[in-house]
Design a protein around this nucleic acid. Structure first.
Length: 214
DNA sequence: TACGGGATCTGT
DNA sequence: CAGATCCCGTAA
């Protein structure tokens, strides 16, 4: 299967790939965010079933970034961002949606990557009451957490295999130089911000139908 | 203790 | 384009 069709078509039959470890995430969020495109997010539900998905849209939030929740100071909510990489940062937005971040960079550098959209391997395993098109079910940070049933109990959790959430590297079939060239990435400014809106720190897989917005 | 803003989504 | 809905940071 060509790399391009992998992202434009429904990614059935995703197979396990090598887990992403903390050191790989211990880089600047603006480096990690585009690197996470094409990687897999695995959700293990309380009953033990796993749902795999392809990360297709991300945003970076860094130290010194006025849009970053850790911009002002360390608080109870953002404390996890100040620690080492490899943990989740989940927060409640507008009283009804949650957003999932991956903590990045070294200990003491508060930063994270917001996961904005996923292409799920299958929607048969999750509730889809609105009968949405499968590739739109996780198209947006709030919808993503709704689909994966993530809430505040999932913040500050380590991203490790056999936990509630973990990351895996791009499938080997996509990791060769030739095929990676087929993964066109678009870089734009971030969505919905009142501060720091000028920084071009949003990335998405250009031809993915699961991207939240163009 | 009180107040109000917010990295969203949906239907009109 | 307005409304839903609530945690938490900030000020008092």
């Amino acid at each position: 299967m060509a790399a391009s069709s992998f992202f434009t078509e429904f990614p059935h039959l995703l197979t396990p790939s090598a887990p992403i470890e903390a050191p790989w995430l211990s880089r600047c969020a603006t480096q990690v965010a585009p690197d996470l495109l094409g990687c897999l997010l695995v959700r293990q539900f309380p009953d033990g079933t796993c749902l795999r998905s392809v990360i297709v849209e991300t945003e970076a939030y860094t130290p010194g970034d006025p849009a970053c929740h850790a911009y002002r100071r360390r608080t109870t909510r953002n404390a996890i961002m100040f620690g080492p990489a490899g943990f989740t940062y989940v927060y409640l937005i507008y009283g009804m949606y949650h957003c999932l971040n991956v903590v990045t960079d070294v200990d003491g550098a508060p930063s994270a990557v917001l996961l904005r959209a996923l292409q799920l391997e299958t929607v048969a395993a999750i509730a889809n009451p609105r009968q949405e098109k499968p590739h739109r079910v996780a198209a947006g940070p709030g919808k993503l957490c709704r689909a994966l049933e993530l809430n505040l109990s999932h913040t500050a959790q380590p991203l490790q295999p056999d936990r509630a959430l973990w990351l895996e590297h791009r499938p080997p079939s996509l990791d060769t130089p030739l095929q990676s060239e087929a993964i066109a990435i678009t870089q734009t400014t971030r969505i919905g911000l009142t501060q720091g809106a000028d920084r071009p720190w949003r990335w998405y897989i250009s031809d993915s139908p699961a991207v939240s917005r163009r």
